[in-house]
Write a protein that binds this DNA or RNA. Structure first.
Length: 333
DNA sequence: ATGGTTTTTACTGCGTC
DNA sequence: GACGCGGTAAAAACCAT
């Protein structure tokens, strides 16, 4: 059931089939050495959720331990039937409580099929109601637990500090409390929460970056994000382009001086209100391109476009504006 | 739905190594 | 001739109305 999801997720991260099918065979030995190892892919720490051992860094699923608790009701003769019997109903992941919770029948009949008296009927009504209430409460707990796991995973995959993950959790809780979940996926809302939290705490990640570590597709992510922001009245001011600079700069390996110039460009541009309406990422990309230009370092537009995921055209347009702004609005001595 | 704004895509010409 | 860069037009995406 979960296999399709896992596979598509791996594909997103460029992990191919052959790369991770090298050492199964002896289940036991593998299990013994499993504790606290590092990811074979990127060296990150491993964490275990829901029967899966997953790398915190890149999201590689290292190990799955899915015990099949489904029905085992195929039997070919009476002897087998005896051997294969199981206690209790098969569990399913389709339900938050794995289908193990109490369910009160809707028919007003007793165990013998006789109809109940009116007094008994009323009692059953009350019981049904309360049973339902507790069950949904429990369902929210579970929902939250899963979502927090997801938030954690995405957070670490994006290299976000603890603070962001906590903020994301808070946002998610609120969404849950306000009943925003019905109709959207847990994953979607969790992704939206991470994105919103990253922006709120001044460590923004672009939509693409977040979408890349999420299991849902970009369209749904954006839709859900807008929805959550609107419904929760989250105050999210446009991201500050400067917040992106450090990351882009280090990915490109430009000098500190160039990075400083980039920041300066952004500041003067901001002072002139040049940034309103423009995408912050684009501005940041332009600055990271223009910075090294001023210090005679070689960085091509294509490279910047690559790490910032912004088209070269946008970089060109923005960086012209940046330079113009710095000439007219610079602070001469 | 609509219109205005921004970004992207695709293509072209120019200079340089 | 490939590469980096600049410009342009049309398409697509985004946002508020």
């Amino acid at each position: 059931m979960t296999s399709t999801r896992i596979q598509s997720y791996d594909e997103q991260n460029g992990v191919t089939e052959s790369e991770r099918t090298d050492e199964p065979e002896t289940e036991e030995t593998a299990r013994e050495t499993e504790d606290q190892q590092v990811c074979p892919e990127c060296g990150g720490d491993l964490a275990t959720h829901d029967n899966e051992t997953v790398c915190e860094e890149c999201g590689l699923v290292v190990d799955e331990d899915n015990v099949d608790r489904g029905p085992e009701w195929r039997a070919f003769d009476s002897k087998e039937k005896d051997q294969k019997s199981r206690v209790g109903a098969p569990t399913t992941k389709m339900m938050h409580d794995k289908g193990l919770s109490t369910n009160i029948g809707w028919q007003d009949k007793d165990a013998y099929g006789k109809s109940l008296g009116s007094r008994q009927r009323q009692k059953m009504q009350r019981l049904r109601k309360w049973n339902e209430r507790f069950r949904t409460r429990d369902s929210k707990e579970r929902n939250l637990k899963q979502a927090l796991g997801e938030i954690d995973r995405m957070g670490s995959a994006l290299g976000l500090p603890e603070e962001v993950r906590e903020t994301a959790s808070v946002i998610y809780r609120r969404a849950l409390d306000e009943d925003l979940l019905p109709g959207r996926s847990i994953e979607g809302v969790a992704t939206a929460a991470v994105y919103a939290a990253a922006r709120q705490t001044g460590t923004p990640r672009s939509i693409d970056e977040v979408a890349n570590v999420s299991r849902i597709d970009e369209m749904e992510f954006k839709r859900t994000y807008r929805y959550v922001v609107r419904e929760l009245n989250l105050q999210i001011q446009p991201a500050d382009p400067e917040d992106y600079v450090a990351r882009f700069a280090s990915e490109l390996g430009i000098s500190d001086e160039a990075e400083r110039r980039a920041r300066e460009l952004l500041r003067t541009a901001k002072r002139q209100g040049l940034h309103s309406g423009k995408s912050p990422v684009g501005l940041a990309a332009a600055a990271v391109y223009a910075g090294p230009l001023l210090t005679n370092e070689k960085v091509t537009q294509a490279e910047v476009s690559d790490v910032a995921q912004v088209s070269e055209v946008t970089i060109r347009n923005r960086y012209h504006e940046l330079l113009e702004a710095s000439e007219s609005g610079a602070v001469p001595a």
